[in-house]
Amino acid sequence: MNEKNNSLLVYTLIYFGFLYIPVLFLPIFSFNDANYMSFPLAGFTTDHYEEMWSKRNLHKALWASVKVGVVASVVSTAIALLAAKAFVRYKFRGQNVSYGAIMMPFLIPEIILAVSILIIWINLGFPLGLVPVTIGHILFCTPFAMLILIARIEGFDFSLEEASRDLGENAWGTFYRVSLPLYLPGIIAALLLSFIISFDEFILAFFLSGSDATLPMYMWNQMRFVKKLPHVLALGAVIIVFTTFIVLLAFWLRNVGQGKEKKDIAIKL
């Protein structure tokens, strides 16, 4: 379709405005020298950002989120990598059922996952804290990581792995010398994005973290106090910038090398 459609373009731009502008208020007001978030802006200040340095609880929550995020992303990416390979490589009985089962945590209301883990965890007599949060995050991140990896592995030429076996490498050598380097951009993208999901996740942390607040929990607790709002805004702005950076990096990685493959195909044709 070579024709243009200006009314649709205008609509699309308005829609993107609706998507993005509300979130932009966070950084705008984080520099506002007032406790209320209202126009006109009262004046420019970086006080709210400086305030973050002195909050010990914030540092603790940040560290908690990083720990949970790293463990959850590494474990869920590893589990997802194996599963993604199974779905791309093989046709097997029960394929759709297995796929549906693994994707379920992505669809079921999170509160139900949180509540059911909460019940089993307390009844096993374990204390609430970062451990159950991490377990919940592994469950929640795995379908995302699997989707990303399937998209990356799909179209992967499995005869490359056979060629490596044929040329004298055993299964580990093949994984290390052929599969890993070729999957790597996808694996890193999956790691980064599952880290971000875990880092931003609220409901599971809300039910399972007990007194060990993660960063979203910390923000939640601060949001109730009007006086502390500006500093939540500053924190939120930092998180949004950080998340955007990581996600863009992951997108870039996901597409790295795929351009080369396209050239490949072009030459073949």
């Binding site: 093989y90 089993i120 377990i135 469950l139």
Partner: peptide, 28 residues
């Protein structure tokens, strides 16, 4: 068979789903 290979790759994921989702939901 392909079935066995696929399920050995899937086992950690299915294990996770059963242990952290299905059993807790049954308990709920």
């Amino acid at each position: 068979s392909d079935n066995a290979k696929a399920y050995s790759l899937l086992s950690p994921a299915l294990f996770l789903i059963i242990l952290v989702m299905l059993i807790p939901m049954a308990l709920m």
